[in-house]
């Protein structure tokens, strides 16, 4: 393993940029993501930085049950994120649609139909600790030795 790869691993493990996108959620999960930023949970101590720009993001957090307006918007947004990248579904809505997935509603869950989802956090909403621990356990798997394993 090259020295450059070691350096990249070290930097990436302490610098995870997160963008979140709400594809039609009730805002409950968004509030839980914002609670991660608060002093009680403080995600910046783990090197996670909420940077709401897909071009600079590593991790995309998706909340919501996928409303029709997002049909042509989520895929381009996902393509804008540079590699290595990973998408995490937060809450029940991107997984199953939960209480919104009823007859004669317009939502189109699961989100994994539209973009590849690496991890799902169940809960309505999930606890901030669950969100943080998921990102922290997922990031090493995806980002470690990315250039080596890509070949």
């Amino acid at each position: 393993m090259s020295l450059l790869q070691n350096l990249k691993n070290a930097v990436r493990s302490r610098s995870i940029h997160v963008a979140y996108v709400n594809v039609g959620s009730c805002n409950g999960c968004d509030i839980e993501i914002l609670a991660c930023l608060s002093p009680r949970y403080d995600i910046e101590q783990y090197g996670i930085y909420v940077h709401n720009n897909p071009r600079e993001a590593d991790v995309l957090l998706i909340t919501g049950a996928f409303s029709p307006q997002w049909e042509d918007k989520l895929k381009p947004l996902w393509d804008k994120i540079p590699h290595p990248k990973v998408a995490v579904a937060i809450g029940n809505c991107p997984i199953s649609g939960c209480v919104f997935n009823r007859p004669e509603t317009l939502v189109d869950p699961p989100v994994s139909k539209h973009i590849p989802i690496a991890a799902e956090i169940p809960g309505c909403p999930p606890r901030p600790t669950e969100i943080i621990s998921t990102i922290l356990s997922l990031a090493p798997i995806i980002f470690k030795d990315y250039e080596e394993t890509k070949k």
């Binding site: 997984i95 939960c98 169940p122 309505c124």
Partner: peptide, 9 residues
């Protein structure tokens, strides 16, 4: 219980 459907109410 199915996780991903249960809302923990």
């Amino acid at each position: 219980i199915t996780k991903g459907h249960c809302i923990r109410c």
